[in-house]
Design a protein around this nucleic acid. Sequence first.
DNA 1: GGGGCCATGTAACCCGTTACATGATTGA
DNA 2: TCAATCATGTAACGGGTTACATGGCCCC
Lengths: 182, 182
Amino acid sequence: MDVKTLCLGVLTLGDASGYEIRKQFEEGPFAHFFQASYGSIYPSLGRLLDEGLVSVTEHAQDGKPDKKVYNLTPAGRARFTEALGDLPAPDSFRSEFLVYLFFAELMPEGQLETVFDAYHKHFQDMADVIEGLSFDRVPPGRMFVRRMGHTFYKTMADYMEQHREEFIAESEPAKRVPKAAE
Amino acid sequence: MDVKTLCLGVLTLGDASGYEIRKQFEEGPFAHFFQASYGSIYPSLGRLLDEGLVSVTEHAQDGKPDKKVYNLTPAGRARFTEALGDLPAPDSFRSEFLVYLFFAELMPEGQLETVFDAYHKHFQDMADVIEGLSFDRVPPGRMFVRRMGHTFYKTMADYMEQHREEFIAESEPAKRVPKAAE
DNA sequence: GGGGCCATGTAACCCGTTACATGATTGA
DNA sequence: TCAATCATGTAACGGGTTACATGGCCCC
């Protein structure tokens, strides 16, 4: 599933401009599990228009460029549900934070605490963001994913909190297994 | 942190060939939070060699190409610990599975169950894999990350199990909010 | 006989990000 | 006055994956 197809999905939630779609990927629900920037969204919308999967209405504005609001055509909606018939690709996850924590014993003085606390704060912040969302008329799919996300963030934050002191104590350079003949 | 730097990290765990490093990324502990394939590992090792950050010993083998075992030089080790002094980049996570579940109500008949169960199985399998690992002489960093990973997989699997029936029932096409004038 | 593992390496490709280009409005 | 927000779009770049190239051994 590429950005082009996902744009169709975002448009099933309502008409939107390229700018607004990007916001969905940056601040909206998708931000947590899919990212896309201008450089991929605008060209995608152009191609979707060529293929007749979306239509566009230009709203003149003063000062700003015309706002181009995209709307899903029936063909576009069909294309998206078709895409949902394929099997999803495996998740991809890359975490430099976990790489750092993995190598805790090799980190310079004080860096473990810094990295650890930043990572913990990230999870806690994300959990808080989700707790602040409204429960108003949220369809089941969105709700399920939201709750699952909240469970994830909260569990990770709690896990880190519970193991912080022990982990940091164990990782002290002084406790490292000395090299042979040293 | 690019693949080149990570290769240095892998080599802090012991000498290895390009082939063996790739296995670390595919089956070893890194598989869960960092991926790299031949096309990035071999060129990385070449450049590390040019920069004097690793040395290499060729072991002749019959039938197979010579096995080139790479070894971290003191400069290489220093470079890696230096790299750990920078701040890690934010995690990147992309999940088509969550996109699909988000749009549960739009999925074709039966697809929700298929996708849901595949995702659940993935989490359960990963949790089982980690449970099967040995506890023998695992340094604190590795252990912390491993336990955190297990907590993650197990929590996600449990969450999905507990909400499966309710979620699938709610997402039935029959329960969708009808469009205006239908 | 065939598939999978060992083992190295290259080249083409792809998808996406980053930075650039442009510029008015609004609020601190 | 400076930063942020609105708003669209392009071009260069980049880091990685995929597929290709090569080939013997071992087990079923």
